[in-house]
């Protein structure tokens, strides 16, 4: 890697991004903070409410439920997608024309817009009309994601795995193909088991990209909105109402600006804090 030089003028290159993001992020964020401490009855009349909304949100069982659902969902997809992605990357051929064929086909889901993914899975999983629905029902399961909570969860998770595992595969594969042949040869000579090769050669090489993959998947899945909304609309009942779906229901559906703003900020802080801790841990580890 090229050695970095210290140059404070580099700030000039960063300024456009900072300004754009500031316009897009700081102003809206201030608005949200503003709302979260006030009550309004329309007409731009606001009353100071202090931390009332925060207390209300933190005490509401509705928030607890959707947060819990969110955590379970994110955990499940991380547990499935990361190892699955790594396993597929390991099983990929190392060279030949099949590599590019595989990579292009695997990248396909990543290019499909979120709402299309939701609609596509809706069609695909419908119990009567969809291929997946037919297959599962044909195997003797009573499968209907619009009615059974378990089926709804299963479909949502499958959809996310379908959409995002390739990201892990591509990142892991890129890391794996940067390992020189001599490492594998040396390991063979040293009598290393396949597990040892994975543990001491492949995993350390993939560590950096896996950090990125985990962080991205954590953030994105924690904020997932479009796909489950299009697929299940948060139902049946509230069983697939994740945090962001709930938030939009409150903010736009009920127009409770105060609670919605307070909830937004709490939500934001959770993501921020978790990501920051993870990022710091991984980066510190790397510098050692």
């Amino acid at each position: 890697m090229a050695r970095k030089t210290t140059n404070q003028k580099a700030w000039f290159l960063v300024i456009p991004v900072v300004l754009l993001v500031a316009f897009n992020a700081i102003i809206p964020l201030m608005t949200v903070v503003n709302y979260s401490f006030q009550e309004t009855f329309g007409d731009n009349v606001f009353f100071w409410e202090g931390v009332k909304w925060y207390e209300q949100v933190l005490r509401s069982s509705r928030f607890h439920d959707s947060l819990l659902r969110q955590i379970i969902f994110t955990s499940i997809i991380l547990v499935i997608e990361i190892p699955l992605g790594v396993a597929i990357a390991l099983a990929m051929p190392k060279k030949g024309i099949w590599v590019s064929v595989c990579l292009v086909l695997m990248a396909l889901p990543l290019l499909i817009p979120w709402n299309v993914v939701g609609a596509m899975w809706n069609i695909y999983a419908l119990p009567e009309l969809g291929l997946l629905g037919r297959i599962i029902n044909g195997m003797g399961f009573d499968y209907n994601f619009t009615q059974g909570p378990l089926a709804a969860w299963f479909t949502t998770i499958m959809m996310d795995v379908w959409h995002w595992t390739s990201l892990v595969v591509l990142l892991a594969y890129a890391a794996l193909s940067s390992i020189p042949d001599a490492y594998y040869q040396a390991a063979k000579i040293d009598g290393a088991t396949p597990w040892a090769v994975f543990r001491y050669i492949q995993l350390p090489k993939m560590k950096r990209v896996l950090t990125i993959a985990i962080l991205l998947r954590f953030m994105d899945s924690f904020m997932i909105y479009t796909e489950p909304f299009v697929l299940t609309g948060g139902g049946p009942g509230n069983t697939t109402t994740f945090l962001s779906i709930d938030l939009v229901k409150i903010a736009l559906g009920q127009f409770d600006l105060g609670p919605a703003a307070a909830m937004s900020l709490i939500y934001f802080l959770i993501v921020l804090l978790t990501s920051w801790i993870f990022y710091t841990l991984m980066m510190n580890n790397e510098e050692k």
């Binding site: 001599a182 040869q185 001491y200």
Partner: peptide, 13 residues
């Protein structure tokens, strides 16, 4: 047999 390669191979971790 033992073999030493042209470029260093070490187990980084």
């Amino acid at each position: 047999i033992a073999q030493v390669f042209q470029f260093p191979v070490v187990y980084d971790t």
